[in-house]
């Protein structure tokens, strides 16, 4: 089973987006979300990102990380480096909300982790109007 890890500066966005993704999926995919600081303020707990990513990379067949602005991506990159760049774990260069929803659906359809990353990244170019 694949895992999607949502990272946001905002705990509310992380929680809300996880809910949105769960509503969209029918098949097998694990959705996880980390947002905000230890105190629940805006920010990111990079140590928690590290431990969560460690756990997911151990338990899943592949992990796709999607983050919002700046430091969430840095926290993810830092975690990957510290874990020795585990196989099958990718950071998608994708918009958070659209990317996560697309990734969750794609992963639940049984696609490969590489295919999920590709689909999430394509969400950048989807026109809304």
């Amino acid at each position: 089973m694949l895992s999607i890890l949502i990272l946001s500066h905002s705990p509310d966005i992380a929680k809300g987006l996880k809910k949105m993704c769960l509503q969209m999926v029918s098949g097998e995919v694990h959705i996880d979300a980390v947002g905000g600081t230890k105190e629940g303020d805006l920010g990111i707990d990079a140590e928690l990102v590290l431990s969560r990513l460690e756990e997911l990379s151990r338990k899943s067949d592949g992990v796709v990380v999607i983050g919002d602005i700046g430091s969430t991506i840095m926290a993810a990159k830092n975690a990957l480096q510290m874990l020795g760049l585990p196989e099958g774990v990718y950071i998608a260069d994708a918009p958070l909300v659209e990317g996560a929803v697309v990734a969750a659906v794609e992963a639940s359809l049984g696609s490969s982790v590489e295919e999920v990353v590709k689909k999430a990244e394509e969400a950048k170019f989807v026109s809304k109007l």
Binding site: D41, L42, G43, I44, L50, S71, M74, K77, N78
Partner: peptide, 10 residues
């Protein structure tokens, strides 16, 4: 990593 919060943490 665990306590800074912003980009300065990572």
């Amino acid at each position: 990593l665990s306590s800074v919060g912003g980009a300065a943490g990572p």
